[in-house]
Structure formats: C-alpha cells, structure tokens
Amino acid sequence: MVIFETKIPKEILSNPPKHVGIICDGNGRWGKKRGLPRTAGHEIGMRVAKDITYACAEVGVKFVTMFAFSTENWKRSKDEVNFLMKLFVRFFREWRQEAIKKGIRVNHIGLLDGLSEELKKEIKLTQVETLNNSNIVFNVALNYSGRTEIIAAARDIAKQLKEGTMDINDIDNQVFSSSLFTANQPDLDILIRTGNENRISNFLLWQSSNALLCSLPILWPDFRRKHLWKSFQGYYDNKSKREFSRES
C-alpha cells in the first residue's frame, strides 16, 4: 500500500510547476463501485476540481487544465450526457463569484458548437467576468479534442498564409503554439491522470510533448491534495534526474 505524504514538498513552494494538466478519470466507476449512479461520481468530481484548483493556486501554479468532457464523450448515454451538460451550467454559474474573489481566471478550451445556448452563455459570462484575474488560469477542457485543436491551428495558419499576413518561413513552434486554444500559455510540466490508465486520450497532444505523465490508481472523486503533492514530488524527482543526466 502506498502511503501519501500530506506535507507539501519544499520544491513546490520555491519553484512550483507552471502548468499542470489533469485528466479527471473515474467519476462513473466511482459511483458504480458504491452502488450509486454514474452521475454521483460526476457531482463529487466537480467539487474535487474546485479544491485542486485552489490548491494549485495556493502554491503558485499559474495554469491548470482539466479534461472535463471530450468530443468522444457524446457517445455516452443520453441521460448521462444531459446530466453533465446541466452540471457544467451549474459549475460555471455557481463558481463564478468565488473564482472572482480568489483571483482565478476561468477559461474554456474546446468547441462551443454542440453545446446548449444556456451553457455557452454561462461560459462566456464567466470568461468575461474573470478575465482580469491573475492568481491562476483554470482551463476547462469541455467538448475538447487534441487532434481537433491541432487541425484548427493548422487552418488558422493556412488562412493567414492565404491572406498574405504570414510568410511560410515564419512558421515555427512558437507561431504554431499561438494558434492553439492555449495560446500564450506555457506547455505542460506535468500531466496527471487518475483512474489507473496510462493513455493521454487525445488531450493536449502538442502541449504535453515534454510533460511528465503521472498515472494514479485512484479515481478522480478520491483525488486529494496529498495526491497532488505526491505527483509534484514525482515531477521534481524526474526533473532532477534529467538535469543530472545532462550535466554528466
């Protein structure tokens, strides 16, 4: 059995990772394991998302991106999808004022097409009202696909080339990154996945190219700050090994 330390590693306080990505997996399985509907896990998972965002902000992480709903998730049962869409409406609506107080900038990444008008309204309003917050940027990856994001970036660049506002020789990593949903944000330092899976599931494909993948056996509703600190410690241990390797 793994014993997780509750103490925050000293490296986090002095030099926290800049961008943390999280694949919040296991909500449905959490509910089923307890004889509850899958939706019960989603409800708890929403609360966990808030607390983990607060924890990241408290130690100085500047960007956190959570995978809330992929474009593939539309294949789930109609009842579950309908519940999730209503849950997202409530998430943006209820959390908006608290996010403002805590200096959290809430940002949606993904496609708006296919979302209800009510949900799109709440997303846009939350983005506008938290726009000037600077403690941390919280990206909600909702109706998101990494491949779709890259295709959209390629189309944006192709459009600029066609219009003559960009030269083909100008295209580099920085230019391509600026056309992604996460424009002007750093790449991931660490990608945490709950649910005991080792796949990145079409999440932030470009941005996670050099990120440490930390896969945990626990389900997302059971994820706590101690698990976050343990993941961060793994990031620093790995970083130290890579720096030692370069120096050798």
Rank of each mutant, 00 (worst) to 15 (best):
K239C: 09
D113Y: 07
G35M: 07
G45L: 02
F176V: 01
V61Y: 08
V2Q: 12
L188Q: 07
I171R: 14
R199M: 01
S70H: 12
S245H: 14
Q174G: 00
T6Q: 08
S179H: 15
S179A: 14
R199F: 07
F232V: 01
S145Q: 04
F4D: 03
P186G: 12
W30T: 00
T65H: 11
I8S: 00
D222S: 13
R155W: 11
A99W: 07
N132A: 06
L205A: 09
F83M: 06
L161D: 09
D170M: 06
G103K: 12
I100W: 08
L115M: 09
G45F: 14
W74Q: 13
V137S: 10
P17W: 14
K162R: 09
S116E: 02
L115T: 01
N238W: 15
G28C: 05
E129S: 08
C56S: 15
S145A: 07
R76I: 01
L188Y: 11
N133C: 15
L213P: 00
L191P: 03
R34I: 00
L188K: 08
N198C: 03
F232I: 02
R96C: 00
M66Y: 04
R47G: 12
A211I: 01
R90S: 13
L84E: 05
K162P: 00
F176Q: 03
N202L: 02
F91E: 01
R224G: 02
T165W: 11
I109A: 05
Q160E: 15
R225H: 10
V2H: 14
R105S: 08
A99N: 05
T165I: 10
T148V: 03
L142W: 02
L219R: 01
L112K: 14
N184T: 09
T6E: 14
K32W: 05
F244N: 10
N27E: 07
L87P: 11
L115H: 09
R246M: 05
N196R: 11
V61C: 07
A68Q: 11
R147A: 07
Y54I: 08
A183E: 08
E149M: 03
G164C: 02
L84D: 08
Q160I: 01
E197R: 13
E247R: 15
R90W: 04
G45R: 12
I151M: 11
K75R: 14
G195H: 02
K121F: 07
I22E: 02
W229F: 15
I52S: 06
E149D: 15
E98K: 14
I44L: 15
E163M: 03
L142P: 00
N202P: 02
S77P: 04
A49G: 10
Y144D: 07
P9M: 10
N82D: 08
V64H: 07
S248F: 12
E80Q: 09
S245K: 15
R225A: 03
E118A: 11
T71D: 11
T6G: 05
L212C: 04
E80N: 06
L212T: 06
E163S: 13
Y144R: 13
F181T: 04
K62T: 13
L84I: 12
I44S: 05
Q185K: 11
H108S: 01
L216I: 05
V128H: 13
L13D: 08
R199G: 01
I190Y: 05
N184R: 14
R155S: 10
N173A: 10
V106C: 15
W30Y: 10
K18Y: 10
V61F: 07
R47L: 14
